[in-house]
Computed example of a mutant assay.
Amino acid sequence: MKILCIADEENRGLWDHFQKEKLEGIDLILSAGDLSSDYLQFLVTMGRAPLLYVHGNHDESYSFKPPLGCESVEDRVYDFKGLRILGLGGAPWYKPGSFMYSEDEMKRRINKVKKDILLKNGFDILLTHSPVRGYGDMEDPAHRGFCAFEELLQKYKPKYMIHGHVHGNYGSAFKRELQHSSGTRIINAYDKFVLDIEEHEYPREGKTGSLLYDLYKQMKGKKE
């Protein structure tokens, strides 16, 4: 599965200088936040891949101008052809805003979504806007990562974490890829990053190992 990961800055090659072949072969687009809703709509319209997103701390305009044709995966595990994606957008609180959260608030969000994680027997990708604390974040209040993500990575050990928030022009603070101590591969999606995931890295659809969820998927498949 080929996934186009995007965040923080609209890629001019995909928008201003768009050519159809640039999206050929892309199976899924994941937005890690702080992007124009017009940009997301453009990509999902011009390509054939669905687009899933979480909010960045600057995405308050989505409340009155959401990216049409795209789907938010906030606070749930979204199943895309067997690939399980957990969405937790927003940034650590440093000023008032709709998508700013304290550590306690993020922990509460995580606790609420644990039922969905259990139902689907884990997740393969953690899609966030902010990084996990200590991995690709910065020391200033506006760009530090969430400590609350550490437990998620250590307990569930997803294959990938995709985030944004720390831009490529921030100098040595920018890290495109890091390896977490849990084994999770962390990717900063700033601008764009194409991720190829092998079939063996995630369950086949309806084969998560969760009896209840797999039965639901199988029954749904028969009806379709």
Rank of each mutant, 00 (worst) to 15 (best):
G25T: 09
K95I: 13
F193T: 07
D59A: 11
G122R: 09
Y62L: 04
K2Y: 07
E139L: 08
R109N: 06
Y39R: 00
S31D: 02
H143M: 01
H143A: 03
S72W: 05
I125F: 09
Y62R: 04
R76C: 12
R76F: 05
P66Y: 02
G82P: 05
R133V: 04
R133S: 12
R185F: 09
K223G: 07
G89H: 05
E24D: 13
V44E: 13
W15F: 15
F193L: 04
I3C: 06
N121E: 07
K159A: 14
N121F: 00
S31N: 03
V44S: 13
G69M: 06
D104P: 03
E71F: 14
S72Y: 06
K207T: 02
K20W: 13
F174D: 07
D137S: 10
T45M: 14
D104W: 05
L40P: 11
M100T: 04
I125Y: 02
D38C: 06
F146D: 00
R133M: 12
P66C: 06
L127H: 02
N121C: 04
K157G: 06
F123M: 12
D79F: 00
F123H: 09
A148K: 09
N11A: 02
G221T: 02
Q218S: 14
S36L: 10
I117E: 10
